[in-house]
Design a protein around this nucleic acid. Sequence first.
DNA 1: GGTATATATATGTAGAATGCACATAGACTG
DNA 2: CAGTCTATGTGCATTCTACATATATATACC
Lengths: 136, 136
Amino acid sequence: MAEKDDKDKKAREEELREKAGKANARPKNWMVPFLLLCLREWNSYGYELMERMTAFGFGAMNPGTLYRVLRQMERDGMVSSRWETSGDGPARRVYSITDVGEAYLRFWADSLEQYRRMTDTFFRLYTGRSPEREEE
Amino acid sequence: MAEKDDKDKKAREEELREKAGKANARPKNWMVPFLLLCLREWNSYGYELMERMTAFGFGAMNPGTLYRVLRQMERDGMVSSRWETSGDGPARRVYSITDVGEAYLRFWADSLEQYRRMTDTFFRLYTGRSPEREEE
DNA sequence: GGTATATATATGTAGAATGCACATAGACTG
DNA sequence: CAGTCTATGTGCATTCTACATATATATACC
């Protein structure tokens, strides 16, 4: 593979650094359970939920992504929505969690426990405290 | 939205249960750091790595996915490979981690710490208190 | 009144990740 | 020589998500 070897090692590492920063920041589908958690506490709407997601550790996100996820969640029956026009600003689509959504949240919590074990395994190996594990 | 209300609640929950089981089991891109972690210990090949991934908590995975990820990692310069034909069975493509791969692993470990905080936040909200985790 | 800004929601497009089915092939077994 | 285990790969479709862009309402200011 002597095709792009004009890049030196440092340049590659920089490239990988960017890639690591982008690709790993957000695991797939985590927004859904976190949104459900928020809606379990109180009904809310996209613009407000966006701010709360940011506080949860999702970096500044594109609004379009969030709104699209919310609509998909409604199609899946996890949440229901109604228009709220009594407020001051523009009309808001206020979401509520459904029974199905709460059920989904329970299933998801089980999966998260698995994540946790994987995370612990990773750090146990990464920091060098490898259990035993012998070669083939 | 009285379009698909012929489905009763139970059917929807079942549907969501399937969805939860599939969609959440594996966060995006976790295979890469775990593979790098394995290859840091000793060089290995796809078929063997697949078994080790299973042990890490990735359920039985499709071989095609793993092989495809490995080739992509090589294109990214994280690993290098050579054919091993001295063994008994068919030839194996044996992978080794590169300096770039080790660097990527370091960046990734930092991101993983963020995951951990997100996970803790989730359970703190979900169960109402912080989960029992022994800190080092 | 007219213009800018903040609030609020949504779509169009493209790329990446991944699952599933399927393809290829060597080596051993009966 | 058919079947099975090992081992690696491709094609296709779906899903998730980032980015840019569009739309509309309310408020502030001149």
